[in-house]
Design a protein around this nucleic acid. Structure first.
Length: 171
DNA sequence: TTAGTGATATCC
DNA sequence: GATATCACTAAA
């Protein structure tokens, strides 16, 4: 049974959603009608304004505003001037948390995945539960998981930097 | 190890 | 307006 994940799936703490997103299949309908699918094999959770690695820890700004929105919202942002990174918002409205989609089974690396799926800022502010051209499916796959610390956040301080909030399929 | 790249935030 | 920063990748 394959079903599109609904708002209910995302409407939980990011620490619950992030591990469950591993093994799910992200789907993208291209302008020409073709559909790309790729299984997610790595995610990271970013949890609240206290989490110094979370963008919202620096305050509520036009960019981080999306983190405060309802669960399922797509948060896309440009990193290092050339890479689009894609997140899904989780948890309660006004609670700034989300999950970074870090890697697919073929395209490892958050920017490679968005490049393959042709994701750019036009998707920013959309919703995985309702967007016509991008969604996530559950096909029943339940990979074995392992956890690790998040990467690329040396600025976040020893405490937050060492949180084991990265989930990786260990198959 | 390092260059490349541009939006964003934070200073003038 | 100017500058510093950055959840990365590819090439070497």
């Amino acid at each position: 049974m394959i079903e599109r994940l609904t708002e209910e799936f995302y409407h939980r703490d990011c620490l619950e959603v992030a591990p469950e997103l591993v093994g799910k299949v992200i789907c993208r309908r291209l302008p020409d009608g073709g559909i790309l699918r790729e299984r997610i094999v790595e995610t990271e959770a970013y949890r609240g304004s206290e989490d110094l690695a979370c963008h919202a820890s620096k305050g509520r700004t036009p960019r981080t505003e999306l983190l405060y929105r309802e669960s399922g919202v797509i948060y896309v942002y440009l990193c290092y001037g050339m890479h689009w990174l894609m997140n899904v918002i989780t948890g309660e409205r006004e609670d700034p948390q989300g999950v970074l989609i870090r890697a697919g089974i073929v395209h490892n690396g958050p920017a490679k995945l968005t490049k393959y799926l042709q994701i750019d800022k036009s998707f920013n502010g959309g919703n995985f539960a309702s967007h016509p051209d991008i969604w996530i499916e559950d096909d029943g796959c339940r990979p074995k998981l392992r956890t690790d610390v998040r990467v690329g956040i040396d600025y976040a301080g020893d405490y937050w930097k060492n949180m084991p909030w990265r989930w990786i399929a260990d198959d």
